[in-house]
Simulated scan of single mutants.
Amino acid sequence: MLSPLDRRQRLFLPFSRGLSNFSGFRDSLNSESTLVPFFRAPAELFGMTGLTYKDSLRVYPSSCSVYQYWKSESDKRSSYSGTELKSDIYATRSISERMIRKLYNFADYVESNAILPFADSEVAKYFGKVPKRYLLNEKTLENKLILRKLLMDKMDLDSNKIGKMGWSFDSRGIVLKNKEIIYAEVCNCKYWDSVELNLLLNRLYKNVGLNSRKGIVSASLIYRVYLISLWLNHNKYIRAQ
């Protein structure tokens, strides 16, 4: 299926095509900087977030830069339109490894097998041959047109009226209300440089209360470092080593 660019991606992509070549400046940015999206490689704009190389290197001295990888992936798709680029990267990287990977991990945990209908080779071949006009309305940016029509024709279900459904939770509230717990867990992780990590947390926590993108990003980064630290601290396989 085709995935149209959202408003922010339409804003950042033209800048990214040029500014991402300045890797030196990119590597000097703080993770919460509002300039970060402008300097990401085009293929990196679709769900790839986290600490910048500058902060990663300080917290985890063995870090390696991901710039060359994403620059190479972007160059391979230099002739793609924005929609084509997002559809390719978002489906094969973000959705597969950041979202569906959680389902696979849970299935492994309960000794089950996750079966996804759209991963069936025959279904994939079919949709790979469907003309673009049945997949995306480029004027309204409405996608999955053939599925929307099937739902309406077969089930009298208007997906446009229902809208996109999902769930979320207040991760920023968790970060704000559990500061002591987060510091204790993160700073107890032997994989980080504790001094640099403490400095990073202090810097990010100054922004968490801001009613801005910077505040949202800072809270998200703290939450992510906290989850990684939890996993490293309590994973039975790592602890057994």
Results as ranks from 00 to 15, higher is better:
residue 12 F to L: 14
residue 15 F to A: 15
residue 15 F to W: 15
residue 19 L to N: 10
residue 20 S to R: 11
residue 21 N to W: 10
residue 23 S to W: 09
residue 23 S to D: 12
residue 24 G to M: 11
residue 24 G to P: 01
residue 25 F to G: 00
residue 27 D to R: 15
residue 28 S to W: 12
residue 31 S to G: 04
residue 32 E to S: 08
residue 32 E to P: 00
residue 34 T to D: 11
residue 35 L to E: 07
residue 36 V to M: 02
residue 37 P to G: 05
residue 40 R to S: 00
residue 41 A to Y: 02
residue 41 A to G: 03
residue 42 P to V: 08
residue 48 M to T: 08
residue 48 M to Y: 15
residue 48 M to R: 11
residue 49 T to F: 13
residue 50 G to F: 07
residue 51 L to W: 04
residue 54 K to M: 11
residue 56 S to Y: 03
residue 56 S to Q: 12
residue 56 S to A: 14
residue 56 S to N: 12
residue 56 S to I: 00
residue 57 L to G: 13
residue 58 R to L: 14
residue 58 R to T: 03
residue 63 S to P: 06
residue 65 S to P: 06
residue 66 V to L: 15
residue 67 Y to Q: 04
residue 68 Q to Y: 11
residue 69 Y to I: 14
residue 71 K to I: 06
residue 72 S to P: 00
residue 74 S to E: 07
residue 74 S to Y: 11
residue 75 D to T: 12
residue 78 S to E: 14
residue 79 S to Q: 14
residue 79 S to I: 07
residue 81 S to T: 15
residue 84 E to C: 01
residue 86 K to V: 05
residue 87 S to I: 04
residue 88 D to A: 11
residue 89 I to E: 02
residue 90 Y to E: 15
residue 91 A to K: 09
residue 93 R to F: 11
residue 95 I to F: 09
residue 95 I to N: 03
residue 95 I to W: 05
residue 95 I to M: 10
residue 95 I to Y: 04
residue 97 E to I: 02
residue 100 I to W: 03
residue 101 R to M: 09
residue 101 R to I: 02
residue 102 K to M: 07
residue 102 K to C: 08
residue 103 L to M: 15
residue 103 L to N: 00
residue 105 N to D: 12
residue 106 F to D: 01
residue 106 F to I: 10
residue 108 D to Q: 09
residue 110 V to M: 08
residue 114 A to Q: 02
residue 114 A to Y: 08
residue 114 A to I: 07
residue 117 P to A: 08
residue 118 F to S: 01
residue 118 F to D: 02
residue 122 E to G: 03
residue 123 V to A: 13
residue 124 A to D: 14
residue 126 Y to T: 14
residue 127 F to C: 09
residue 128 G to Q: 04
residue 129 K to G: 04
residue 129 K to S: 14
residue 130 V to Q: 09
residue 130 V to N: 05
residue 132 K to M: 09
residue 132 K to W: 02
residue 132 K to V: 12
residue 133 R to L: 10
residue 133 R to P: 00
residue 135 L to W: 02
residue 136 L to F: 08
residue 137 N to T: 05
residue 138 E to N: 12
residue 139 K to R: 10
residue 139 K to L: 12
residue 142 E to D: 10
residue 143 N to C: 13
residue 143 N to V: 04
residue 147 L to C: 05
residue 148 R to N: 08
residue 148 R to W: 10
residue 149 K to V: 10
residue 151 L to M: 15
